[in-house]
Design a protein around this nucleic acid. Structure first.
Lengths: 345, 345
DNA sequence: TATCTTGAAGAAATCGGTTTCGCCTATTAT
DNA sequence: ATAATAGGCGAAACCGATTTCTTCAAGATA
């Protein structure tokens, strides 16, 4: 057991060349005579030799690893992003190292440390402190410090930071959703879920208001519903509360994400209303949940493929010293399913 | 920009000690005088110094990385496992490197290569070829080869392999599910989804049969329904087919996993039957899907916490040269929700 | 008192690659 | 014909840690 580990030296010796030449064959960034190249390649084949990434990284001062920090990979949205980023990274010869912060500052810190120890070439940060509106001085400071040694790509706003931003176009997404609902005759529209101190939520509400204004629909404050989190339970409770109030029921509810939508749907059902006949429900994100629940949800998502590509390519571009754009927007994609009714018919 | 990277040498110089001493402070496996230790620790603090994992790994021939290969992290089951394994690995000072094979042999091979290049200390394999019943000679050979240089932990059977096995106790899970259904008066029970050449599915069917036999219920071959995959669509189609056949409808359907259950539920609804009043549906795995769909599904899952711990601890134990058990079973946990009715009342 | 341990710490080798430097040879330009 | 350039390749330095040797001093044992 434990076969002798073959190294570049072993290959060099057997091929009758210097280790440098083997390295040249490996990296491909120097000329080697066809004859020697062949001999080396044969031996590489024979021993199924793979260069030690640690040694390679150490000497080249490039780990070829990109770190991705997400709050929780069990959230389908982040799982999706992880898969897309992995694909994009692999295509460029990079490895993606994913860690979960579990929305916990200490764990986040821990994983950032570990990633730094691995000397990741770049960092992609999704969610976490970054997504909250208040740019905690300290946090910005920290990000800038990291950003000082490696490129950091974030998906959210962080005022005063040197990070590259790749954002979902929340504004456009909200516009589309509102236009769709309004063109289907809805005027009593509720936007439910999320905290206003979270950037993306804040942006959506701003846009929600401006759309109502644009179409001359009065804004009703009670139709903007705050929840503490973004879970099914939050949606469920919020909708229950709406039922319990004396408020006139909305004809359509916009859920802040698919999870929340799930809770809203449950609440509506329990109150013996039908979807979409009595109340329409639409949501943000369009994860697989929207496609697999009953009824299937009309939801506005993003081109996740493109999102992943953009994140990774921005990171790599920055690693290579090119100057990728500081801010990029990912356009939304509305997917119409069965949870919204045209109430004019 | 780009602060000077502090290394052990820099620390050593400023502290007036040798690099070896700094290393001793870092690893903690050798004695250093309190005085020098303090001086070094202060400087580590001052520069926020973190040792370069590549250099450390290279010299210690331990990467402190455990590789986890899953088919697709977007599947909540694997997302769950990834989170649990990451937690367990972090607790032991290891990093978890997750990759997705996307059930594609070439991609699987690619990622295995990459992990080898990183010199992961151990490998945890979930799903993939490993889960198929037919132990392809070549595949076993390959696994044994890997297993020859580092510990490999798999969650499935692979006859003739040297890998460590940590299996879900499918047999016991099926027993529990069947006992529950039968004690609720069900006798026309259908088990739906999955391919018989997949180990875990095979094991479930074996047990399905033996349970029926045990309770003196005749086995009806048509109630054992094969599907090509494990998706929602597969469940949906399979259940539609059942409706289309002249077969007497079962009073309960066991779905091979939560996704399939979702499809089965959709089909049943579309045929205007109610769950659980007309047909009961239960499933394997108990991912969050079972808890968030309508109606919430009675499902048998596993102690994922324990599962993750066991996988990682087995790997680490093997890394350290201890001799962990070759085969371990994770007991199931039945979670009763609203999708199954007692038909005797 | 002489000898044996044990603790502390530096020098230097090592891990396995990449990269710089310099040398030699074969073209190509002048 | 000669200088300039480029290709091929080995020697050796280097990346940043760990670890093995050694040395030396101090405390324990005979």
């Amino acid at each position: 057991m434990g076969k002798e580990r073959v190294s570049i030296y072993r290959i060099a010796e057997e091929a009758g060349v210097s280790p440098a030449t083997v390295s040249r064959v490996l990296t491909g960034n120097a000329n080697v005579s066809d004859e020697k190249r062949m001999r080396v390649e044969e031996l590489i084949q024979k021993y199924d030799f793979r260069p030690n990434a640690m040694a390679r990284g150490l000497s080249s001062t490039q780990s070829k690893i990109i770190g991705l920090l997400v709050p929780d990979i069990r959230n389908p949205f982040f799982a999706m992003m992880a898969v897309e980023c992995e694909r994009a990274a692999s295509n460029k010869g990079y490895i993606l190292l994913v860690s979960n912060s579990m929305s916990n500052m200490e764990l986040e810190e821990y994983h950032l440390q570990k990633m730094f120890e691995q000397r990741v070439d770049a960092l992609i940060l999704m969610g976490g402190k970054v997504d909250e509106l208040v740019s905690d001085e300290e946090y910005v400071e920290k990000m800038n410090q990291i950003s000082d040694s490696i490129p950091v790509v974030i998906t959210g706003k962080l005022d005063g930071s040197d990070c590259y931003q790749v954002n979902i176009d929340e504004a456009q997404a909200t516009d589309r959703l509102m236009e769709y609902l309004i063109s289907n005759g809805h005027r009593k529209i509720c936007i439910m879920g999320g905290r206003k101190d979270v950037n993306s939520t804040y942006a959506k509400r701003i846009r929600y208001r401006s759309n109502l204004r644009k179409y001359g629909i009065p804004i009703q404050a009670e139709y903007i519903v705050e929840t503490q989190g973004y879970s099914l339970e939050c949606g469920y409770e919020a909708m229950n509360n709406l039922f319990d109030s004396n408020l006139e029921l909305p004809s359509a509810v916009i859920a802040i994400n698919d999870f929340t939508a799930l809770g809203i749907v449950q609440s509506i059902r329990q109150h013996s209303y039908r979807i979409p006949e009595d109340i329409s429900v639409v949501s943000f994100d369009n994860t697989f949940i929207a496609d697999t629940c009953t009824p299937r949800l009309t939801s506005i998502g993003y081109n996740y493929d493109l999102f992943g590509d953009t994140l990774v390519e921005t990171a790599i571009s920055a690693i290579e010293g090119n100057n990728p754009p500081r801010l990029q927007l990912i356009p939304p994609e509305l997917v119409i399913r069965e949870s919204c009714r045209n109430i004019m018919q």
